[in-house]
């Protein structure tokens, strides 16, 4: 705002700053005028929706964590929309990162540049090597236990992406868990395949009736094996959605960050 063609000071710039300050003040007072009567009134908050969900949430969806019951059971289409928005945002960001002209070689500012890869120090070696598997394990736990304890698909997916970023930071050149000469465990291609399969699963589960079909399938499988699977079957769609969303979010965000760290140039 300061470095304009009119110089960093002068009547035009001062008027611009005054205008910004006045606009900010007007916006703040408008927000206060809207919120203050709501927050400071003596009328009780309406509790009809809260009481209904608290009474029927576990019976209707099978999930003890009522937040998961809401956004994966009662309002699952909202979650589908959010997943689609995240997919589009990640696709755009990955395209933007991939087209960055001449991404900097990662030893530009004096890190210990050797064949081990981007800026290796002892701290990064410890974090990447020792903490990454623990973070991945914790992310999987948060993703799978979303229906009984705080967590779920989005949370677990983001923690999984953090674990993969640890690995991408500390990798040796040409590493990231190379399985075969053309496949790496956490490389861009593997991550995009995982993301596509997970998103297809979420889409398949959002067709009307597919959740009930999955629950019926689990119940029938349990009956044929002699196990009463009624309670497990009811929460089956929520667990499946959690896994699908978690893998999609985790691999998508990890793909973006791996590309930012230069993982697709090996």
């Amino acid at each position: 705002m300061g470095d304009t063609q009119y110089g960093t000071d002068g009547p035009l710039v001062r008027r611009g700053k005054l205008l910004s300050a006045a606009t900010g003040l007007a916006a703040a007072s408008l927000a206060l005028a809207v919120l203050a009567p709501v927050v400071m009134s003596d009328v009780d908050w309406p509790t009809a929706a809260r009481d209904t969900i608290a009474a029927d949430g576990y019976a209707a969806t099978g999930a003890t964590n009522l937040v998961s019951a809401i956004y994966l059971g009662y309002r699952a289409f909202d979650t589908l929309g959010e997943t689609i928005v995240l997919l589009v945002a990640l696709a755009g960001s990955v395209a933007l990162v991939a087209s960055t002209p001449g991404r900097p070689d990662l030893d530009r500012d004096g890190g210990p540049a050797d064949s081990r890869g981007p800026g290796h120090t002892d701290i990064i070696n410890v974090i990447a090597g020792k903490l990454a598997p623990i973070v991945l394990l914790f992310g999987t736990y948060v993703m799978l236990y979303g229906h009984t304890s705080p967590g779920g698909g989005f949370q677990g997916g983001v923690v999984l992406a953090s674990g993969v970023i640890f690995i991408a930071i500390g990798r040796r050149a040409g590493g990231i868990g190379r399985i075969s000469p053309s496949i790496t465990a956490f490389g861009p291609r593997t991550l995009s395949v995982i993301e596509a399969i997970a998103f297809a699963t979420v889409l398949a589960l959002s067709f009307p009736g597919s959740g009930a079909a999955l629950a019926g399938l689990i119940e029938a499988t349990g009956a044929s094996a002699g196990v009463a699977a009624k309670g497990v079957a009811a929460v089956g769609p929520i667990i499946a959605l959690n896994i699908g969303i978690g893998l999609k979010v985790g691999s998508g965000v990890a793909l973006l960050c791996v590309m930012m760290l230069g993982g697709d140039q090996e």
């Binding site: 705080p150 967590g151 989005f154 949370q155 983001v158 953090s162 965000v253």
Partner: peptide, 11 residues
Amino acid sequence: AITEAAVGAGL
């Protein structure tokens, strides 16, 4: 809280 910590402070 989990989401905000992972997304805001991490990614």
